Computed example of a mutant assay.
Amino acid sequence: MDAVTGAWEWLTTGANWQGESGVWNRLGEHLWFSGVCLALACLIALPLALWLGHVGRGGALAVNVSNVGRAVPTLAVLVLLTITPLGRIGDLPTIVALVLFAVPPLLTNAYVGMREVDRAVVEAARGMGMSGGQVFRRVELPLAYPMVMTGLRSATVQVIATATLAAMAGGGGLGRIITAGFNTSNTPQVVAGALVVGALALLAEGLLAVAGRALDPTRATRRATP
């Protein structure tokens, strides 16, 4: 309880939110890291997963290969990248490590969502004269949308939580608050930093859940169904 009380006092002290090492600045850095990594991971994983799910070939191999990455500790990847020539290019090692960490849930969920679309519905759409592209856009993608969003939410929470490792490579983000607390044996600061990261992850999860329901392309159809 002392650590929690101390963390609350730390968070409610205005000076801890100001300046280069303050919470607001570290939060901005954390959001930048997370946003860039998620955007890159989506650009890599989603087109590949959706296409493989559409054609029904090679997807299982791609999913298995991507899932191997889950067994590799992100910190180990970050350390290895840092000692390579990439470590001389600013935040690139952290971005690469986090992108590799975000790809598996995005790719797996999107591919599974595409393959779980009722084949009878797909064949019916083709029987109506739809082209492959039309079937993809109007039938498969809307029906796979919930699984795609599940993967996005999972990847977002994981990246936000794991982006704290950027501090290990000298980067910014909320991890710097936690590491600074460790370096000075300031337990309340460590707990406060962890609480901010946890709150940010939960907020992102909630916002994506609301956005997912609001943007669901099958929402109107479900409402019209008695």
Rank of each mutant, 00 (worst) to 15 (best):
A125I: 05
M128Y: 07
E20Q: 14
A201D: 10
F182P: 02
V63D: 07
V4F: 05
L165N: 01
V121C: 07
A220L: 11
P73Q: 10
I95S: 02
W32V: 13
P93G: 02
S34V: 08
N16L: 00
T187A: 07
T74E: 01
S154G: 05
S34A: 11
E20L: 15
L208I: 10
E205Y: 12
G198T: 10
V36Y: 00
P47E: 02
A220H: 08
A204K: 03
E9T: 15
D216Y: 09
V68G: 12
N64C: 07
G58R: 03
G198I: 03
I89R: 00
L92Y: 07
L215I: 03
V135W: 15
V65K: 05
L200M: 15
S21A: 15
V148T: 10
V55E: 10
A15S: 10
L75F: 13
I44Q: 00
P146A: 13
E9N: 15
R88C: 04
I160E: 04
T13A: 10
W10K: 11
A97I: 03
E205N: 14
L40S: 04
P142H: 08
P188N: 01
L31Q: 04
L46N: 07
A169L: 13
V159Q: 11
V99Y: 06
R126I: 05
A102C: 04
W24C: 00
R70G: 08
E29S: 08
L215R: 06
G59R: 08
T187H: 03
V139T: 13
V68T: 12
H54K: 12
V122F: 01
G133C: 15
D2Q: 13
S66M: 14
A60T: 13
T12V: 14
